[in-house]
Design a binder for these strands. Structure first.
Ligand SMILES: [Mn+2]
Ligand SMILES: [Mn+2]
Ligand SMILES: [Zn+2]
Ligand SMILES: [Zn+2]
Lengths: 135, 135
DNA sequence: ACGCAATTCGCATCAATTGCTAATTAGCAA
DNA sequence: TTGCTAATTAGCAATTGATGCGAATTGCGT
């Protein structure tokens, strides 16, 4: 995801308005590696801007996802997680605390057993216990 | 997942009863490689047994999952998919028709960028267009 | 055949997300 | 700076997949 300043330009160029609510979310998401849910972002946003609506948080997240500025990922944890890192990477999910960490694999694994399937992308989810929870 | 006959034994040994509804689901699931949702199973079950409840389908699926006879997988398609194949394998999901196919990878990919994470298992989801939809 | 714990199934409930819309506001142009 | 107008906000209703509940039913060990 680009910086709040760059997003401001991008939004205006697309005919979208730059509101205080959106600027706040730009700031909360930029460089955020915690893979927050809409709930969590709503809680964070509410601290800085009491009265902001959960609906608005969803709206802005969807706008950003549509623009390709962030990805929405479903790890089966009940709610979608949002990731401003749209570069190619994988995830490790802790079974204990639910934390999601970025990881990388050296090379995309080849699959076998299926002919004629045109692969667009492959996503790997590692599940286990994170360093914090192991102690 | 074991055969309907074996499951009948296993259920009774666990103190669970073997009802006609459960026997039907045993049959519908055994050797099923289509990764059906609860909805789809309910539709199939309703053909053979009109009046069966969706609640009962969920109940039985949860029982089987708890016993380790099948796995519940969330591909982010809106509803959970159920897989009676509990051996180590991966999946390819068609972006067009939503079909889920079993695939295999030669070797589990190593991840890097995270210290002290104890990996229990890794799941890979390939997304793209299946052979049927390509034509 | 009996007794009782397990099961079924309809309905209420829940959680995450989206639909709808009246009131508000950003941003452009005069 | 002011005014116009389309975009946005925010509250609430609705939706969807799934679970909680409980009265009526039924499997199954004795
Ligand atoms: Mn990430
Ligand atoms: Mn499978
Ligand atoms: Zn953890
Ligand atoms: Zn397809």
């Amino acid at each position: 995801m680009r910086s709040p300043a760059e997003l401001t330009q991008a939004f205006r160029q697309t005919g979208l308005k730059v509101t205080p609510q959106r600027q706040l979310l730009f700031r909360l998401l930029h460089g955020n590696t915690s893979h927050p849910s809409a709930d969590v972002l709503f809680a964070l946003a509410s601290e800085a801007m009491p009265g902001i609506s959960l609906r608005t948080v969803y709206q802005t997240l969807n706008d950003l996802a549509t623009m390709g500025e962030l990805q929405s990922i479903d790890f089966g944890t009940g709610s979608a997680r949002f990731d401003p890192n749209v570069t190619d990477h994988q995830h490790a999910v802790c079974n204990e605390c639910g934390a999601v960490h970025d990881v990388h694999v050296s090379r995309a694994p080849k699959m076998s057993g299926l002919e004629g399937f045109d692969i667009h992308d492959a996503h790997i989810v590692y599940r286990g216990i994170c360093a914090d929870c192991a102690s």
